[in-house]
Simulated scan of single mutants.
Amino acid sequence: MIFELTMTNLISLAGLFFGALWALLKVIGGQAERRANEQFAALQASLTNLSVDMRREADAARQLETSFLKFQAELPRDYVRRDDFVHVLGTINTRLDNFALRVERVIDNRLGNVQ
């Protein structure tokens, strides 16, 4: 059982070793590439979801801005209406009070004259 190492055997063993090493590196590289592709796909899906969410947020912000601008446009009109209502109500109350005073004076004058 003597094992002879001739030059052809040595070259064949070295070729076999380097071939196995190259195949192992190729398999490891393929796995790393698959893993990187999976991560990039997950990242792409995340970015797509983020893009959709950002569009929704932008639409919501636009709607909020629109409703706020409508509120700003309606507020002065409603405030003026309210102010006018208070003014008119005050005028009506003043006129009713004046009318009540006149009626009291007339009644006092008539009762004062009768007695």
Rank of each mutant, 00 (worst) to 15 (best):
M1Y: 14
I2Y: 11
F3K: 14
E4K: 11
E4L: 10
E4G: 07
L5G: 03
L5T: 08
L5S: 05
L5C: 06
L5E: 12
M7Y: 13
M7K: 15
T8A: 11
T8G: 06
T8D: 07
N9G: 00
L10T: 01
L10Q: 01
S12N: 11
L13M: 10
L13I: 09
A14W: 00
G15T: 07
L16R: 10
L16P: 02
F18T: 12
G19A: 12
G19F: 13
L21Y: 10
W22T: 09
W22R: 09
A23V: 13
L25H: 12
V27R: 14
V27H: 12
I28W: 08
G29C: 08
G30F: 11
G30L: 14
A32K: 11
E33I: 13
E33L: 15
E33D: 15
R34I: 15
R34F: 13
A36H: 12
Q39K: 15
A41I: 13
A42W: 12
A42P: 06
L43D: 13
L43Y: 15
L43W: 12
S46W: 10
L47S: 11
L47N: 14
T48H: 13
T48E: 15
N49R: 10
N49W: 08
L50P: 05
S51T: 09
S51P: 01
S51L: 05
V52E: 15
V52P: 05
V52A: 15
D53N: 14
D53H: 10
M54R: 10
R55E: 13
R55A: 15
E57P: 02
E57F: 08
A58C: 04
D59C: 06
D59V: 07
A60D: 12
A60E: 10
A61M: 01
R62G: 06
R62H: 04
Q63R: 06
E65K: 03
E65H: 02
E65Y: 04
T66K: 04
T66R: 10
S67L: 05
S67Y: 01
S67F: 00
S67N: 03
F68H: 08
K70S: 04
K70H: 06
K70R: 10
F71E: 04
Q72V: 12
Q72A: 14
Q72P: 08
L75P: 03
L75K: 12
L75H: 09
P76F: 12
P76G: 06
P76S: 09
P76I: 13
R77N: 05
D78C: 05
D78H: 01
Y79F: 02
Y79Q: 13
Y79P: 00
V80N: 05
R82H: 04
R82P: 00
D83M: 02
F85H: 07
H87N: 03
G90A: 07
T91W: 03
T91L: 03
L96W: 03
D97S: 09
N98M: 03
N98T: 05
F99S: 00
F99D: 00
F99P: 00
A100E: 08
L101Y: 06
R102F: 09
V103G: 00
V103S: 02
E104L: 07
V106M: 07
I107P: 01
D108V: 08
N109V: 07
R110P: 00
R110Q: 02
L111F: 05
L111K: 08
N113R: 11
N113P: 03
N113C: 10
V114R: 10
V114L: 06
V114K: 09
Q115R: 08
